[in-house]
Design a protein around this nucleic acid. Sequence first.
DNA 1: AGAATATTTTAGGCTCTCCTAAATCCTATC
DNA 2: GATAGGATTTAGGAGAGCCTAAAATATTCT
Lengths: 224, 224
Amino acid sequence: MSDSITAPAEDYLKAIYDIERGGEPAATNDIAARLGIAAASVSGMIRRLADQGLIKHERYKGTRLTATGRKAALRTIRRHRVIEAYLARALGYPWDSVHEEAERLEHAASDELVDRMARAIGEPHIDPHGAPIPTREGDVDETPLRTLLDLKAGQRCRVVSVADEDADLLRYVAKLGLRPGTEVEIVDRAPFDGPISLRVRPNEAAVQIGPVLAGLMHVTAIAD
Amino acid sequence: MSDSITAPAEDYLKAIYDIERGGEPAATNDIAARLGIAAASVSGMIRRLADQGLIKHERYKGTRLTATGRKAALRTIRRHRVIEAYLARALGYPWDSVHEEAERLEHAASDELVDRMARAIGEPHIDPHGAPIPTREGDVDETPLRTLLDLKAGQRCRVVSVADEDADLLRYVAKLGLRPGTEVEIVDRAPFDGPISLRVRPNEAAVQIGPVLAGLMHVTAIAD
DNA sequence: AGAATATTTTAGGCTCTCCTAAATCCTATC
DNA sequence: GATAGGATTTAGGAGAGCCTAAAATATTCT
């Protein structure tokens, strides 16, 4: 069975894909941190994945996905995001709790099921957090996104996605009115990594968010 | 983690539950056959399940579920059957292919998801093969069912369920018009375990089925 | 450069779930 | 009531995936 990809292996591939999007090969430590396991355990799995031709690893340097590995990662990501979208739209799940359920289902659902789910909700191209859903063929929009940290006071933008799956955080974001799709104006930015002041709705008080949260809010600038 | 039930353990409990319905404690060999693994492997798992208090095992005698084990088995069976029903009704799965998908999902789906699925399709009490769905509380109809083998020529009955999940077999059963709910009359029974002749629809030719298939067809007699 | 620090890998262990081969126990038949 | 044949269990082993502790390598700082 050296060709079959186990559930943990799928998680590694997803993690490596995400980290690698930053440009650099994925460091062992970063993979370990993202998966919440010991770095030593990652070394072991890296060997197995490399043996399967899913990744390319240079000792002490880092890890990159091969074309095969990338495809496998995107398949898992598609499953995950389609399932999230389906749970939210077809079964009434709140957006802050779809992630956890999808995290388990993505390893058990067949491609057939995922396709049926996608069809049932009209072939969505984003998940409930605004992240793009890869196509069956493995194409995704990989345009690098800006976050609220990249904008200056006075600029306007639209929230595209929230780069975190923590339920509490998502609930907080929703409470502030910052769900994907929302238009926002940067009212003010305090210096020294201070809070950012946003106008979410005209004629309402601005809301303040810290730089950590701001860095998780993917946005597109809106030409004025 | 001695209290958490792994996916393989859930499969053992389901198997034991099914076998035990025959009245006798489940034999190691029968469990092995049903799960498609070596008998020696079953001995090992039996020890673990007994340690967890899920089963009672008497060496060389057999295995029975404890109350806790029974509850766990029924929870898994509920998951499985709700998922089957949901796949068929909400996602258009053909009845012959829901089993395989449900077999994997049942170990990954949360109770929350299963309940939402059940609600979405109107809290069904049977799955696509006619098998009863246990309630959230773990109650099931365990009335012993008769099969076509228990009836004589001339008797009429209604197909309740098909006790097999093989896709080809299910397709064949459907082709004969013998889906659960169908009314059937025994036209003739050849002796010496010969074929059984059934009238499925009035004014149509009788169909013949062998004793193996007949033994899988659960029915209730209809008072004439 | 050389030492201190951080990262990564190796070594050795553990659990789970499966395997085959060999013992052990039960039962049914002669 | 001994024994053959079948069922069951034990013994020993394998691979996945995790762990901690220690060794190896890379990087950073003085």
